[in-house]
Design a protein around this nucleic acid. Structure first.
Lengths: 131, 131
DNA sequence: ATAACTGTTATATATTATATATAACAGTTA
DNA sequence: TAACTGTTATATATAATATATAACAGTTAT
């Protein structure tokens, strides 16, 4: 299973699932039209409650990443369904800003911040399959 | 007062205070050795509870940004007290990574992501005084 | 000395978010 | 008919956040 969770993490379980599904889509581990495990199946695999998985799936649906069919289950959407919107740009800015402010305050230069980002991008690139 | 809070924000009040104090330090609105308002004073100004302010101050103390003296109040530390540590680098990476992953998944290129960061850095630079 | 101010501690309460536990429902598929 | 979907409902537990009072111990100004 490509999905793992950390029960001791400060990040809520349903958000960990959400983030990893998004990562799976980016890395092409989850392809367009592909089905995610059923809420019961994934919950059993991870040893958590069904409703926690359901919460993650519904969030992903609300954000456009997947569709949920009553019978077919959760299916990965095409990229146009979750293309960055103006609203998302603002949300992203609001999320990045305090990180830049604190890191700057702690003496991390712009160049070094970008270096850290480069590491992350490189790390994603290495994981990415079939470009 | 240079500090404002948004009660409807998803960000906890005590974290909003923390973030703005850090921003104040970065922008030199708060100088080394300068005192922050007392917990009671700031709470009254913001129309919130004393303990919420106290929680923010204690977090800032724990992170090295300020010192708290029983009588003198909360005093801004010198930069060496909150210089980025190896632990902080890891924390920063962990915070930035999901943002890069989601934005990439939503079709935002590395170049555009940096453009957004540039906007933020420029915005900070414009606000910065006597840098 | 007294009053006014510090941060701290303690106790109690309320709300919200997160997570779990069961159970049942309605529809599909084998 | 049996086994599987997501969904809905109800109930409970825990933790985080925020507030409300009250008191304590030490400093500072009057």
């Amino acid at each position: 299973m490509w999905l793992t969770i950390d029960l001791r993490s400060e990040t809520a379980i349903y958000l960990q699932i959400r983030d990893q599904v998004i990562q799976g889509i980016l890395l092409n581990e989850l392809k367009i039209g592909e089905s995610l495990p059923s809420v019961r199946q994934l919950a059993a695999d991870l040893g958590i409650n069904m409703h926690t998985v359901s919460k993650a799936y519904n969030l992903l649906k609300q954000e456009g990443f997947i569709q949920i069919h009553r019978q077919k289950g959760a299916i990965v959407n095409a990229p146009n369904s979750y293309q960055a919107s103006e609203e998302y740009y603002e949300q992203l800015k609001k999320a990045v800003k305090p990180l830049i402010i604190e890191s700057s305050c702690r003496g991390i230069s712009k160049g070094y911040f970008y270096k850290i980002c480069e590491q992350i991008y490189r790390n994603i690139g290495l994981l990415e399959k079939g470009g």
